[in-house]
Design a binder for these strands. Structure first.
Lengths: 157, 157
DNA sequence: TATTGTTATACTCTATAACTATA
DNA sequence: TATAGTTATAGAGTATAACAATA
């Protein structure tokens, strides 16, 4: 039997690859965010909706979807859940468009979500200078853009 | 009706948040990688396995899982698919451990995957100086570490 | 008993195609 | 016809719990 604790250390050709480090960090951050939102009964996607709608009352479902790059079909169950929990109301406007507004309960959640997002931001910026943080965001955007080139979907707005 | 092309530009409180930019970049990069691997009939997770096993012939399934932070239960279908396509062989060693080796076909795939990974890396580094790229990797690791603090799973090795 | 692998299952996010409703 | 929204469905990744096999 292998000696306990003697787990083989193996060469990792992925370590140091931007794509891998990016994904690993992203998954960990989303998991942590998910934990933080759990007491509110919200998933990250729902919390993001609240952020957008709270900051842009009356925007339509498709506006919000575009902002978050969530496809129309995938907006439906997210919006539905926010409706069911009484955080959101939809008001038909022009065409088939639905304007979205937070209810009073939704606004209360929104305030809590804002705090959680802010504290997460602070947490991940902890080891970064303002300048480093800024460069990081710029680098992430350029990578996003680069990755979208030559693809149909997920294109920058 | 809303004028065509006049999609509302809305305030995006998530823009500039590390977590959001991180996730957005990660999703786009994975989608692009997925496209690039499609001609080989591989998914990103399978390609990553090939990378690890190709670089570490004979490592066990749990070694590989640890390296990629893939849970044991989730290794099974990935390894199975690589076995079915004849890219991989498993040889029992000690205990229940299975040592993994690439077949000749697996090694051929491995070479192609290496090229694809390298060209992606090059692509995403295109707008970054060596120094900026280095700082980016360091920042991503520190974010990963930070996000893992206070969580049971996904912990750094 | 500890480690390794397996099965089954569920949840989240993403994607597509086909449909309805409104102008 | 173009836009907005919906339904249904599929796929990929991740997580857990419970189990079997080996030392």
């Amino acid at each position: 039997m292998k000696a306990p604790g003697k787990t083989a250390v193996i060469t990792d050709p992925l370590e140091n690859l931007l794509g891998f480090e990016l994904r690993r960090a992203s998954v960990a951050v989303m998991a942590a965010l998910s934990d933080a939102l759990e007491p509110l009964g919200l998933r990250p996607s729902e919390a993001s909706m609240l952020m957008i709608i709270g900051s842009n009352p009356g925007s339509t479902q498709s506006d919000v979807g575009r902002a978050l790059r969530v496809q129309p079909a995938n907006m439906v169950p997210i919006i539905n859940r926010l409706m069911l929990t009484g955080s959101l109301e939809r008001i038909p406007t022009e065409g088939r468009s639905l304007s979205l507004f937070l209810t009073e309960q939704g606004r209360a959640l929104f305030e809590q979500v804002k705090d959680i997002f802010a504290s997460h931001e602070k947490r991940y910026s902890r080891h970064l200078s303002d300048e480093a943080r800024n460069e990081l965001v710029i680098a992430l955007r350029s990578i996003f853009w680069e990755a979208c080139q030559g693809r149909q979907d997920n294109r920058p707005a």
